[in-house]
Amino acid sequence: MAYTASPTPAGPIGTQYCVCKVELSVCGQNLLDRDVTSKSDPFCVLFMEVNGKWVELDRTETAVNNLNPAFSKKFIVDYHFEEVQKLKFALFDQDKSSMQLYEHDFLGEFSCTLGMLGSCSRSLLPNGEEGGLTWPSCCLTVNRLLENHCVTHTVLPQDLFGKSDPFLEFYKPGDDGKWMLVHRTEVIKYTLDPVWKPFTVPLVSLCDGDIEKLIKVMCYDYDSDGGHDFIGEFQTSVARMCEAQDAFPVSAITRDFSFLDYILGGCQLMFTVGIDFTASNGNPRDPSSLHYINPMGTNEYLSAIWAVGQIIQDYDSDKMFPALGFGAQLPPDWKVKCSGGPHV
């Protein structure tokens, strides 16, 4: 899967200032074919769990007659480091113009947390059984977007197309060496001199923040049945476009590192617990003690460990969390230990 965020405003620090926007990109391979006389027309729907219920956030465009779609529509989501944000990606085969999902054929779904997407490698390849159906091979890529870290492209008219319906697709090379769709323009109907609307693409989405990285631009003649005719292609880079300001007006490029930038760069967090077992905390059988062993729930220590650990676990690769204690009476001599190693 693959995020624009305003610079952090001046003022008191709070959770509202620790939010950035992320962009989730989706592409699929070998999707289920639910049509009889043609191939499936897939689209992807993103859900987020809110108060225990799945709420639809957005949908991609429909890829007509295509079992290997690369959706140009990106999902933009607010990323909160301190929260567990549960996401679900569901694929459907469009059969009608209805917005009701039950009127379209279900192809498969995949659930994860936003933290998992940010902390794993750039892409996630889910496979398995979901809802009785096999989830197809699907690449999910996550990127962070910045309003002051983007590039605007304006394509000038070219007398190359004849009477066609041209549109452009912009690609960047993925980690696997394959070209990944970044942006698709609108279609200009029946023209010799197409002029596409100016558009903005975050630099991290366009070239992973590397202005020397090659970008491939492909031009097609649109066909309603999905069989678009190839017209031509060329390769360039943001650096080259910056040098040709008359042809490619580009906004200022700056860099503003955030917590998520470090996570996407490979930084991990380790979670270690230290617990005071001394008698000053009270008898564990006494409900007033922080160490109270509550048969009906958790004590204050367990609640704190659970709340923090549930967030941190997505950013720790080995999922091992050392638990250290001091002030405990340990066998075989049962003497109070002022400090010690792992007890859990």
Rank of each mutant, 00 (worst) to 15 (best):
residue 185 T to W: 03
residue 189 K to V: 07
residue 170 F to N: 00
residue 153 H to R: 06
residue 150 C to Y: 08
residue 143 N to E: 13
residue 183 H to T: 02
residue 146 L to D: 14
residue 173 P to A: 08
residue 198 P to T: 05
residue 199 F to D: 00
residue 206 L to S: 05
residue 145 L to D: 14
residue 179 W to F: 05
residue 164 S to L: 06
residue 201 V to M: 09
residue 142 V to H: 09
residue 208 D to N: 15
residue 189 K to M: 07
residue 207 C to V: 13
residue 148 N to I: 10
residue 181 L to Q: 00
residue 141 T to Y: 14
residue 191 T to D: 00
residue 153 H to P: 00
residue 168 L to E: 02
residue 169 E to Y: 00
residue 181 L to V: 00
residue 176 D to I: 06
residue 191 T to L: 02
residue 165 D to Y: 03
residue 202 P to V: 04
residue 191 T to G: 01
residue 203 L to H: 10
residue 140 L to Q: 13
residue 193 D to L: 12
residue 146 L to C: 13
residue 148 N to R: 14
residue 208 D to W: 14
residue 168 L to Q: 04
residue 178 K to Y: 03
residue 143 N to R: 15
residue 149 H to R: 15
residue 145 L to I: 11
residue 203 L to V: 07
residue 187 V to T: 12
residue 160 L to A: 13
residue 202 P to F: 05
residue 202 P to I: 04
residue 167 F to N: 07
residue 155 V to Y: 10
residue 167 F to K: 06
residue 166 P to Q: 06
residue 185 T to C: 02
residue 147 E to G: 10
residue 189 K to W: 08
residue 197 K to I: 04
residue 163 K to R: 13
residue 184 R to N: 03
residue 194 P to S: 01
residue 192 L to W: 12
residue 167 F to E: 09
residue 151 V to Y: 03
residue 153 H to A: 07
residue 191 T to M: 01
residue 139 C to T: 15
residue 141 T to Q: 15
residue 188 I to L: 08
residue 170 F to A: 01
residue 168 L to A: 04
residue 139 C to P: 07
residue 171 Y to G: 01
residue 200 T to F: 03
residue 201 V to L: 09
residue 154 T to W: 03
residue 163 K to F: 12
residue 141 T to N: 15
residue 200 T to K: 11
residue 163 K to H: 11
residue 166 P to T: 04
residue 166 P to D: 08
residue 176 D to M: 05
residue 139 C to F: 15
